[in-house]
Amino acid sequence: MIDLNGRVAVVTGGETGIGLAISRTLALAGAKTVIGGILDDKGQAAAEQIKKDGGDVVFIKTDVSAEEQVEALVQSAVDRFGKLDIMVNNAGVFDGFADCVETSPALWDRVIDINLRGVFLGTRAALKRMTPQRYGRIINTSSVGGMRGSADGCSYTASKFAIIGLTKQVACTHSQYGITVNAICPGVIQTDLRQTSAINLGDVAPDMSRGVGHDPDAYKAVVPAKRRGTTQEIADVTAFLASDAASYVTGTAIPIDGGWMAF
């Protein structure tokens, strides 16, 4: 098992789905963990359950598109635990497979604000704390939709491709300071992303019932494993990237997709 004792982590979007599995895995591996998320009730419930299971964790309500809130989230980890070692920029919303014509400027702006601006703000805040200590692990959640143009909708695809570019650029400029920067790219994973995205997008939310949600077996045509991945499988790879075992892994975008990118 990965040992993260003595480390301090921040996980955005850590109250549901993949983020919750990451928060739990890092905390139970020994990292003192701060969860930042927009869904207050789910965040408080997640923190309480992880505490019951033995993790040292706190939840702070955070809108990742707001610079001052992201800065406050990261600083709270430093104030509470003395430093920041691991930053997981996971918060994101789905666009319901809306194509370019269907994507309103309002939907585009909101998806980009959360998915891309949020990763930029989290990365920037983390670098300011990690660079002086010459140590850090930054993991950004992209998607297979950041590697294939046919996987998702217009704004989601654009945001996830951009996350990979941001990850690679920051790795080139900051790996010399002992900071690794990587992206994880989940494939078809069983989560509640559609439901939480509808809540977070509010009035600009598109129809979330298309694609795999409309035909639950459609993914089998392109995923060699013929099954959905689990949130724990994503969390396990994230924990590896957060550990010292991955100290020479940086600037990568890792598909966790049951072979979809090999198809």
Rank of each mutant, 00 (worst) to 15 (best):
E71F: 08
H214S: 13
S247C: 14
N140M: 08
A126I: 00
V10I: 12
V11P: 04
G178F: 00
E233G: 08
A45Y: 08
R137H: 03
I50Q: 09
L241I: 07
T16C: 10
K32L: 05
A242P: 04
K61E: 12
A9H: 01
A98D: 04
D203P: 13
G149M: 05
H174I: 00
S159C: 09
I35G: 03
V249R: 00
R124E: 07
Y219E: 02
L121A: 06
T62L: 07
G13M: 03
A21W: 08
S197E: 02
I38M: 10
A162K: 08
M208N: 09
A235P: 03
G178A: 01
P216I: 10
I163Y: 04
R129T: 01
Y219M: 08
R24S: 14
L193W: 11
G13Q: 11
R137N: 06
A235I: 03
D40Y: 14
I254P: 00
G118C: 07
L166K: 08
A21G: 12
C185Q: 11
T173Y: 15
H174N: 11
L20E: 14
S243D: 04
S159V: 13
F120N: 10
I234K: 01
L39V: 11
T25K: 15
R227Y: 12
L84N: 05
Q44W: 05
I254W: 06
M1G: 13
